[in-house]
Nucleic acid binder design. Structure first.
Length: 370
DNA sequence: TCTGGGGTCCTAGGACCC
DNA sequence: TCTGGGGTCCTAGGACCC
């Protein structure tokens, strides 16, 4: 089974056995496995399952660091006396999730997040793997470097160019050599991992640092008259999510992908943080205008807007005057209508002719922004 | 590999400050 | 007119993850 139409968003283990991977084009996936059943994503169902999952996580450990809808780090240190050993806790966790949420999960147990993450990957599907303290290197050293969480194609290529193929090869190198190849942060991090001394702790209660939305049209490319209404629709979604979670932001980033699928971004930082639709839209339009010539020349296949430099509303900017006072009530009224009657109950006239029914992305907005 | 949508973190240069 | 040492913020791009 494959989830997603144009692009594979997820695939069952049976489908993966045919070589299908996330992010792969639908055409290629069908070629690899013609008998696969493709289904559209159901974001609401994933959000609901995620809530159930995190309920169990929160009951299991005092410190939980969410990584995605379905992954988290749990710090179970110090729980031994009343909750049992890490393995006992993990067995109970797997059972409770299966019973209460109805899905199988894999668990990796280790002294550090990176090793735990890699262990859980090795335990899939539906498994449990403990990497005992002091035996990290036994587990890690035979692995190829690209198996390290955080090492992708580019880093693997660079390492390979220096004759480094396995984690053991990394461990044989002095830190300075690694820093020379990968830069300061990356080099030090990988050196620590390979020597079993990675120490990044579980960071509970992390809050989101950016809010973004984007829309791709593929080879078709955006028509000129679509650009502004698409931008407005994206800004509507982003600012509504920000207001709902009580956050404001200062930096507006416009994301572009041209006809040849290369990407660019440009940004402006506002004098004050905001979640007002109007203020973000004005900034976005300015950035879009500045890129108009390039877009005209190269064609556009993706438009996105992200608000960064996010902070809690009122955190340091108390009593700041709204940038567009008359629009504040409009934002509030539209938020209320959408809360009561659904995210697509009100929309811009400029968007009306094009969007039939709620898009998957709009439905995804209904998830809880952590 | 003919390409969705949502994020995170790091780097590097320039502006500006003391 | 040339030059130290240290810091912050902004912008653009890249790598990586689910």
């Amino acid at each position: 089974m494959i989830v997603g139409a144009g692009v594979v968003m997820a695939a069952s283990y049976e489908a993966k056995a045919f070589g299908i991977r996330g992010g792969m084009g639908g055409t290629q996936a069908r070629r690899l496995c013609p008998d696969a059943i493709a289904v559209p994503p159901r974001f609401e169902a994933y959000v609901e399952a995620s809530r159930g999952l995190f309920d169990v996580f929160e009951r299991t450990a005092p410190r939980v660091e969410g990584l995605s809808l379905e992954e988290a780090f749990l710090d179970v240190s110090g729980l031994e006396r009343f909750a049992g050993t890490p393995v006992e806790i993990a067995r109970r966790l797997r059972r409770e999730v299966r019973e209460q949420v109805g899905i199988p999960i894999s668990v990796g147990i280790a002294n550090s997040k990176v090793v735990a993450k890699m262990a859980s990957g090795a335990a899939k599907p539906d498994g449990l793997l403990l990497i005992e303290s002091g035996r990290e290197r036994e587990f890690l050293h035979p692995l190829r470097v690209e198996r390290i969480w955080g090492v992708g194609a580019a880093t693997a290529r660079r390492l390979r160019a220096h004759g480094i193929g396995t984690v053991g090869d990394i461990a044989a190198l002095p830190e300075e050599a690694l820093v020379a190849i990968l830069g300061r942060a990356g080099g030090k991090h990988l050196h620590a991992i390979a020597n079993g001394r990675s120490s990044r702790g579980v960071r509970a209660g992390r809050t989101r640092r950016t809010y973004g939305a984007q829309r791709a049209v593929g080879l078709r490319r955006f028509r000129k008259d679509e650009l502004d209404s698409t931008l407005a629709a994206l800004v509507d979604r982003v600012t509504r999510r920000m207001r709902r979670s009580g956050r404001v932001g200062r930096t507006v980033v416009l994301r572009l992908r041209f006809g040849d699928y290369t990407r660019a971004s440009c940004s402006r930082t506002l004098p004050r943080p905001t979640a007002e639709t109007r203020a973000i839209l004005v900034a976005g339009r300015r950035l879009l205008r500045a890129s108009a010539v390039t877009i005209e020349r190269r064609g556009l296949t993706l438009l996105g807007i992200t608000v960064a430099n996010v902070e809690p509303d009122g955190g340091g900017a108390q009593l700041a005057l709204p940038l567009y006072p008359s629009e504040e009530a409009l934002d509030a009224a539209l938020d209320e209508v959408r809360d009561r009657f659904g995210p697509d109950s009100v929309t811009r006239a400029s968007v009306l002719g094009r969007n039939r029914g709620p898009s998957p992305a709009v439905l995804a907005d209904e998830r809880n922004d952590r």
